[in-house]
């Protein structure tokens, strides 16, 4: 898979402070509603995932955009009609939290723990960052080929914590950009 003759990539730039206009429109202006929402519909246990994005000073970021990519409850990416992609901003809620409504994914392969790919964008970051959400209540984490090899003192940063609420199962997942609790980000670029 040599890429030596490949075309050079287009460089990334920050999403900036005004991304809601094009990427997470609320639909009240000009009939330009959201094409991609914070919701994924498919087979599986309905869950919410919520949390905040903290900057290096420990302050919640109010203009981050998060995208998630995942399989459905059967661990499938290609179930007809299923789109395992959603997007949420942190600027809508008063406490600057984000929320996704989705289904708990199944493992993509046997031996893997269920997980979600999360892509983090924000004003002040020139290149998006990739992380993963694993579920704290999954015994399979300890054998997952990726999770189990991560540095022990940092892997907890990828665990979403489950709570049972009136509205169903809810997982909390915060993202820390810097500091002692800095989330593990993965190299893909």
């Amino acid at each position: 898979m040599s890429n030596e003759t490949g075309l050079p990539l287009t460089p990334s730039q920050t999403v900036g402070p005004y991304f809601t206009l094009g990427l997470t429109p609320t639909g009240h202006e000009a009939g330009f509603g959201p094409l991609i929402t914070n919701e994924i519909r498919g087979e599986g246990e309905p869950i919410t995932i919520h949390g905040k994005v903290f900057d290096g000073a420990g302050k919640p970021v109010n203009d981050a955009m998060l995208e998630i990519v995942q399989a459905d409850g059967d661990g499938r990416l290609d179930t007809p009609g299923f789109i395992g992609f959603a997007r949420a901003g942190t600027g809508e809620a008063a406490d600057n939290s984000y929320t996704f409504k989705t289904v708990k994914p199944g493992p993509l392969r046997s031996g893997e723990a269920p997980h979600i790919c999360m892509i983090v964008f924000m004003r002040g970051m020139l290149l998006h960052a990739y992380t993963r959400i694993y579920f704290a209540d999954e015994a399979a984490n300890s054998n997952d080929p990726v999770f189990s090899r991560l540095p022990e003192d940092r892997r907890e940063t990828l665990l979403a914590r489950r709570a049972e609420t009136a509205g169903g199962a809810s997982y909390e997942f915060d993202v820390h950009m810097q500091g002692d609790r800095e989330t593990i980000f993965f190299r893909h670029l």
């Binding site: 990539l9 970051m125 950009m177 500091g179 593990i184 980000f185 993965f186």
Partner: peptide, 24 residues
């Protein structure tokens, strides 16, 4: 091809880009 997550002259990037190298 890409900029780093942060750039000193872009002030708000200092507290926002990841502090550590991404993990393979």
């Amino acid at each position: 091809a890409h900029p780093a997550y942060t750039y000193p002259d872009y002030k708000s990037s200092a507290l926002r880009g990841p502090g550590r190298e991404p993990v393979d």
